[in-house]
Design a protein around this nucleic acid. Structure first.
Lengths: 206, 206
DNA sequence: TTAAAAAATTAGACAGCGTTCAGTTTTATG
DNA sequence: CATAAAACTGAACGCTGTCTAATTTTTTAA
């Protein structure tokens, strides 16, 4: 078969991402198959290479889309949050991962081939999540312009990420941790409190 | 060919682990191949299934072996450490991962098939690492019998792990973090300090 | 209106993978 | 010495990602 007009280029792109996303959610990266995605979309394998350049390209796009869903989830959680926005953030981080463990894990299991880079559009999708956290952390710091606030926020993301990845991978279950979210939140609070104190001490010398 | 006597069962087991470990270090889990391991050992694929039951079994064994090397590495670092043992621990955690990124990543990328469990021997190899950290954290807490010290230690491992996995996967690089080890160490210190304060406060009421 | 060029899509080939299993050879048992 | 058990191979199966030649459709240009 040759050229078809069932879908525009954009529609076809969206279709493949959608089907691919569904397959990733069902099976995880290890059992993900480009051929299966194509079959579900009603196209042949080659089309993936035509649209995304490579299978890695499709997977990266699927993962970037997961980032977007994750950011949406955090926004909703924050909109519904009361005073304790940091808690909402940490809980939102965790429950997205636990609701979609395969999608979430795929983000971290997939590596781009050396030399490859994400298209700008996708870098933006991924950076959005960091931006949300940075904003909230700044607010919690009382001095939103604290030097190094961005780095500090990323470090807190890493802290929560570590706890979350232990939960999703089952490591924490094995270690019989009753409340991983609570632990992560406790660590985050301790670090934020430490920054506040440091700030207070610094200020008192001015 | 039928039965051979080139190696005893134990030798054969060790040989396959050794070759498999080397391949894992070179190529990472994504490109790991049981056939290639067998070829390098001078046996056919089937032998892996004969010795380890499944390819997953071999991979799990390789990963457990990595845990042992990692624990050895930490012990060496601690033996050479001065007063600041927590720093030695955090740095030891990171530089093992950075020296052997493929081996280290494989640990967290590999999931046992549902229903499968690690043999006791391997569970022990993995638990050893946690035990080292727990001991050092207890020492740093001044009250080694603090309730929840074990959970707290594991939470600190998760904290460091999060930072480390961002470095190894390149996520932090994307975000231009100049000193991930320093960040991780700072977070750990903050949390340990917080426990000390809490302890002091609690004690003052007795 | 039509001829030529470009784009989209497929089918098939290729080499590799994990897994299984019948068959063969060696070792151990009685 | 005969038989049973264990170890090992080789080939088959169905799957994978990747690439390319061929085909069809759409677009462009004359």
């Amino acid at each position: 078969m040759g050229r078809r007009s069932d879908h525009t280029r954009e529609e076809l792109r969206a279709l493949l991402i959608s089907r691919g996303h569904a397959l990733m959610a069902e099976q995880g990266l290890a059992k993900f198959s480009g051929r299966e995605v194509a079959k579900r979309a009603g196209y042949s394998v080659g089309t993936i290479y035509n649209v995304f350049g490579s299978l890695d390209g499709l997977i990266a796009t699927i993962n970037s889309h997961t980032f977007s869903l994750w950011a949406d989830h955090l926004h909703k959680r924050l909109d519904a949050a009361g005073e304790d926005r940091i808690k909402a953030l940490v809980e939102g981080y965790f429950d997205f991962a636990l609701e979609h463990p395969n999608l979430w894990s795929a983000i971290y299991e997939h590596r781009l081939a050396e030399g490859e880079e994400l298209p700008e559009r996708e870098q933006g999708q991924r950076a959005a999540l960091t931006a949300i956290v940075e904003q909230e952390v700044r607010a919690a710091l009382s001095d939103p312009d604290m030097p190094g606030a961005a780095r500090f926020a990323r470090s807190l993301i890493a802290t929560v990420h570590g706890h979350c990845s232990y939960v999703v991978s089952g490591t924490f279950a094995l270690l019989d941790e009753p409340d991983p979210v609570g632990s992560a939140l406790a660590r985050v609070r301790e670090s934020i409190a430490a920054q506040r104190v440091e700030l207070a001490v610094t200020s008192s010398f001015n």
